[in-house]
Amino acid sequence: MSTRTAILEAAAGLLATSPVADVSTRAVCEAAGVGAPTLYRHFGDKEGLLSAVVDHGFERYLAGKRAARPSADPVADLRRGWDNHVAFAVENPAYYRLMHSPAVSTPPESANEGYRMLLAALERVAAVGKLRVSPPVAAQMVMSANVGVALMLVTRSETYGDDVSRRTRDAVFAAILTDAEPGEPGDDRLSAAATRLGALLSRSGSDALTAAETGLLQELLARLGT
């Protein structure tokens, strides 16, 4: 194990037992068996260390998502993704609080990867005509609600019932998903169709339109999908 990894593992171990999702550099150095200069050489300062630990936590979270294979039902996959997110938070409360702490001012790249995975999942939902808003808008709604519920469950678990995650998930999904079938009248079906066409256009890679024409069409579809 490299010195850097040893420091990260020591910080992660201390963090797992911390009631406030924080660790001191002195405690980390003692646990890793290194001096402060070594820690600062690898991470710069305490914020750099915490950012690295957060990245380590996100990597653990993303490992399961990377290994998952999409099913034939993108909506079911979306629900599963929400539930897995909450389960990871509940099983790793200290990690999760730090992952979303204001003390870490620079989000790691792995956090951006998680968002891109969610966006890709929503684009699959849009491609089958089940999304009533654009994938980016839906991603913002799902991510903010999912993180909010998870944080409440790891910081105020005694206040919330066991079904708060399911109820919030179902409410958010009701706002972004549609069960309307092709041929049904109404604005809901129009929004879903526009969102579906936008998703298919993004994935097609077709050169039938110029970049400017594609951009204009996507803008018009986005308006119809809102």
Rank of each mutant, 00 (worst) to 15 (best):
R4T: 07
R97Y: 08
V142E: 11
P136S: 06
S134D: 12
A212K: 10
D170Y: 04
V53Y: 09
A171L: 15
A192V: 03
Y61K: 01
S206C: 09
T159K: 09
N146W: 10
A67M: 00
P93K: 07
M117L: 13
S206F: 08
C29A: 12
P19G: 05
R69F: 03
L197T: 06
V75A: 10
A127N: 02
K46P: 04
A180E: 13
A68H: 00
V90Q: 14
M143L: 11
V149Y: 14
P108Q: 15
S165V: 04
A36D: 10
D187L: 12
F58P: 00
S18P: 04
I7R: 09
T5F: 06
F173R: 09
G114Q: 00
E181H: 08
D170K: 03
L122H: 07
M99C: 02
P70L: 02
N92E: 03
H85Q: 09
L15E: 09
A120F: 12
M143S: 15
P107N: 11
A67S: 01
A194N: 01
K46H: 09
Y61F: 14
A208S: 01
E123M: 12
G129A: 09
V54G: 13
M152I: 05
L217T: 15
G225F: 05
P19W: 09
D77I: 00
P135E: 10
A208T: 01
P136C: 10
L78C: 08
E113Q: 00
T214P: 00
L49K: 04
A138K: 14
E30P: 02
G57K: 02
S157G: 13
A120S: 14
G114A: 05
G215A: 15
D162N: 07
F173L: 15
M117C: 03
G33A: 06
L62N: 00
L224W: 04
G161A: 14
A72Q: 05
L8I: 11
A212D: 14
D77C: 01
L217I: 07
V20S: 15
G215V: 05
A67G: 00
T3E: 05
L131E: 10
S206L: 10
A199Y: 03
A175V: 01
C29W: 02
N92M: 03
V149T: 14
N84A: 14
V128S: 06
G57Q: 08
M117V: 01
N146K: 15
K65V: 00
S101M: 05
S165N: 08
A222I: 02
G148N: 08
A16I: 02
A12E: 07
S2D: 14
A120W: 07
Q218V: 10
G48L: 14
A150C: 04
T25G: 06
V128I: 12
